[in-house]
Design a protein around this nucleic acid. Structure first.
Lengths: 226, 226
DNA sequence: GAAAGTATGTTGGAAATCCAACAAAGGAGG
DNA sequence: CCTCCTTTGTTGGATTTCCAACATACTTTC
């Protein structure tokens, strides 16, 4: 566990927690590590809720598949970020979504009930952690609002551009990489992969952007798009 | 303030708070009441964040308008429910959305910073309130996830049905009323009002549902839709 | 380095959406 | 009761998306 202190100290949940307290708190929260091979489920729809997951290595994709098999990508969770916390904090019995490892990696499982119940060991940190958790859940809320903003756009092109402009702003540069492959980006924006691919092609030919794989560059020329 | 105790005691924020503590807490949170006439803004995009609003009477619609004037309805807040909490708890400076009063009504403003800072008067309730707040933010998270689930459907008809099935489940009956008019429902689902209207017409003729204004009835016949 | 498998780009026709404009149905106010 | 105004339903053409199928990289594996 000690080797992941660098990751965990960047985790919003442990903001302001020192190395020595970290160990106590992880113990208090019933932390256990688990390896997930690439492509394998981290948890599945219907699994009992009540946990908070922390990505230590790799990346985790949270998805919801409907009756027809249409997949909706809710979010991609990177090392140091958490998942499952909203469902657990809301008090639902079972998870309404599934999650899969994009790359092989490690996740840390924390018991949400222990987090919300006052403990005897590290109470001075407990309140801080609940405040951290509150902030983390609120931020995830903002992320969902942004996703809704993208999906609210009328055309595929507008959805793509809204997402890319947001990414450029978030990463502070007109050059950036995204955490989705093309299929996942389409599932994230709620559009067809092939149609999206065609629109990206148009945007490239129009000189609006350049891209190669996960790398994008938004040009600052503002011209008419075909 | 006293006259709204019935409403406030049903507010998730004050779960488990008695009548006498309520007054202390409201004072502690810097609560102030405000009347909003029908159609007027409750707050506007760009206004400073840091507050939590509680609807006492009427209803508040939270929206986001993009460059082109396309409106996206994020949520409708009913009496006893709260709004603005996610943005304030996430620590953003200014509100990224606007809100308008659907009917004339009253809202209560609470200072979010005071809620997150330990006070001297009612500390035993303070921790409970932070826990309540966490649960409320997490639940709003679920509501956003459900909205995304509706919007992820490919066709307008599927979006409508997904929403109506969810409402029927939430209200525990195949007959129910929705808090949106047709334009707002379209803005909520991210579709065109006229196209939605046409699809609802088809569903009625197909015997899938019946509706009149905000009232809907989902029939349990499962037949092919034209 | 060849082969198999995966990811991405491209295309064409069918289907659905968008948009604008109008018709019809209600409600509010005089 | 009438008029004005808002909301809801309807229609048709232009646009866009969806879907399936295929072509072309790029990766991985042996």
């Amino acid at each position: 566990m000690e080797k992941y202190f660098a990751i965990l100290s960047r985790c919003s949940l442990f903001a302001g927690v020192g190395r020595e307290e970290m160990g106590l708190m992880l113990n208090c929260l019933g932390a256990r590590e688990r390896d997930i091979p690439k492509g394998e489920p981290v948890f599945l729809e219907g699994d009992p809720a009540g946990f908070i997951g922390v990505v230590l290595e790799g990346a985790v994709q949270v998805v919801r598949d409907d009756y027809y098999g249409t997949r909706s990508v809710l979010t991609v969770v990177q090392p140091g970020e958490i998942f499952g916390e909203a469902f657990s904090c809301a008090g639902v019995e079972t998870m309404p979504v599934s999650a899969f490892a994009l790359k092989g990696g490690k996740v840390l499982w924390l018991d949400c009930k222990r987090m919300l119940t006052v403990c005897s060991n590290a109470c001075q940190f407990h309140n801080r952690m609940v405040a951290n958790l509150l902030r983390a859940v609120a931020r995830k809320n903002l992320a969902l609002s942004r996703k809704i903003q993208f999906m609210s756009q009328r055309t595929t092109k507008e959805k793509i551009m809204a997402y890319l402009l947001d990414q450029a702003k978030a990463q502070g540069s007109s050059e950036f990489t995204i955490p989705h492959d093309r299929q996942a980006l389409a599932d994230f924006l709620g559009v067809e992969r092939s149609a999206m691919s065609a629109e990206i092609g148009k945007l490239k030919r129009a000189g609006i952007l350049d891209c190669k794989g996960p790398w994008f560059h938004l040009r600052d020329t503002v011209e008419e798009i075909d």
